[in-house]
Amino acid sequence: MSGQRASTSVAISLNGERRTVAPGTTVADLVPSTWRRGVAVARNGEVVTRGEWSSTAVEPDDKLEIVRPIQGG
């Protein structure tokens, strides 16, 4: 982000909705800690594995998807 001042917030898309988060926010910060099993995250069309959540900081304009299994046929 050369040429820009350090931003105080990062604008991202989370499940299709615009959200602003603090700089340095990681994927792990976005997933409720109570969701222990059956949750997955994609960032810009690629899966972020659970092991990578805490080391993956979100960046401006990231498109994040957080999904869980629900009833289906």
Partner: peptide, 28 residues
């Protein structure tokens, strides 16, 4: 079978069907 859908991180709580099924020994 189960479907995969966006989950709202703000909507915590409620029963988790996946855990309910796997806890009972069903394969999803």
């Amino acid at each position: 079978t189960m479907a995969i859908r966006r989950a709202d991180p703000r909507a915590t709580g409620g029963e988790n069907l996946y855990e309910l099924l796997t806890d009972r020994g069903y394969q999803v």
